[in-house]
């Protein structure tokens, strides 16, 4: 019973890492379930270390998940229960990733043209040199660069231009799905807007589906159709972006929203920040029960005893909290 509209389905995904020199494990992603519909942008937000990047990488199986199930366009890529593991090469063409750091992610010794051409060579897309070159130039123009840029090296480019190169490289193999891991976080505000608009244009033109990872809720809200909020390896709330911003249900989401610095002095003066006490616990020793309980203003005994399920609280809106009805009163 697979849903035609779903491009990606992730169920109970876990990714643990060993801690060097000890028997501890990092619970980087600890049972995450969500889906992404074809052609939509699913935003993933949460604080540093909550497992956003790890989620993106395990979906592409750049790191092998500890357990769970990943289904892409009806095909099982990974299922720890049945032991199924798909050969990834054909899917690598269809699923791509754009990285946060536009400086570190490009090989400084390769020209921009070769950087963009490399994935085409890996997947043997062109045997004809002229066609390959034409495609490179086409891709560069897609991302707002020109043919003259093809022979230059990454260090000759600004951060925003490098990020464009990274995106052209991801597009080189005609993917359907792109994991965008903080693709604008390192860029200046005025350049961020250029790149965000480009992502939107490319999506419309090429019918792309995005998993858009960022810690900046206002950017994620702008670009996403639906948003998942992560905390300490768990998804604590999932909803459409408007629903999430205007009717958030989870205490963590509420504090996250109230902490967004609003670039409007009148609104900023009126709004009250919900300032959370303390810091995020370590994913090596996560708290029992609800991962958020150590900082939660609503926590009671049950919160330390059992993990709240990510349950539907309104159509298309899920949250994981024992006291949803008390929150926000």
């Amino acid at each position: 019973m697979s849903d035609e509209r779903k491009l990606l389905e992730v169920s109970d995904l876990k990714q643990y890492f060993p801690v060097a020199g000890s028997r501890d494990v990092v619970h980087a992603v600890d049972g995450v379930s969500f889906h992404i519909n074809k052609g939509e942008t699913f935003g993933l937000v949460g604080e540093s270390g909550c497992g956003k990047t790890t989620t993106g990488r395990s979906i592409l199986r750049l790191t092998e998940p500890t357990s769970g199930r990943i289904v892409f366009d009806g095909d099982v890529l990974f299922d720890s229960q049945t032991g199924e593991k798909a050969k990834m090469l054909p899917y690598r063409r269809r699923m791509q990733i754009v990285f946060q750091d536009p400086y570190a992610s490009l090989d400084p010794r390769m020209t921009v043209g070769d950087i963009v051409g490399e994935p085409m060579d890996i997947h043997k897309l062109f045997s004809n040199k002229e066609e390959r070159q034409a495609r490179i130039l086409e891709l560069l123009s897609h991302v707002g660069l020109n043919s003259e840029h093809a022979n230059r090296y990454p260090h000759e480019f600004s951060g925003g231009q490098r990020q464009r190169v990274g995106i052209a490289r991801a597009l080189a193999v005609d993917p359907e799905f792109i994991v965008c891991d903080e693709p604008v976080s390192a860029l200046d505000v005025s350049i961020q807007a250029q790149v965000v608009n480009m992502f939107e244009d490319l999506q419309r033109e090429l019918g792309l589906t995005y998993l858009f990872i960022a810690h900046d809720l206002s950017i994620v809200n702008h670009i996403s159709d639906r948003i998942g909020v992560m905390y300490l390896g768990h998804l604590v709330e999932v909803a459409s972006s408007d629903e999430l911003i205007f009717h958030s249900a989870h205490p963590y989401t509420k504090s996250l929203i109230s902490a967004v610095p609003i670039a409007d002095p009148k609104t900023a003066r009126k709004s009250k920040r919900i300032v959370l006490e303390g810091d995020v616990p370590s994913p090596v020793n996560p708290p029992s029960g609800c991962p958020f309980r150590t900082r939660c203003p609503y926590q009671t005994e049950v919160c330390s005893q059992s993990m709240p399920e990510l349950a539907e609280i309104a159509p298309g809106h899920q949250a994981a909290c024992h006291h949803i009805d008390k929150v926000g009163e």
Binding site: Q192, N197, I219, H222, I245, F246, I262, A263, T267
Partner: peptide, 14 residues
């Protein structure tokens, strides 16, 4: 920059 409390989608003007 995106308007946070804006329900209508508005394209950014870079």
């Amino acid at each position: 920059i995106p308007k946070f409390y804006e329900q209508e989608y508005e394209r950014l003007v870079p």
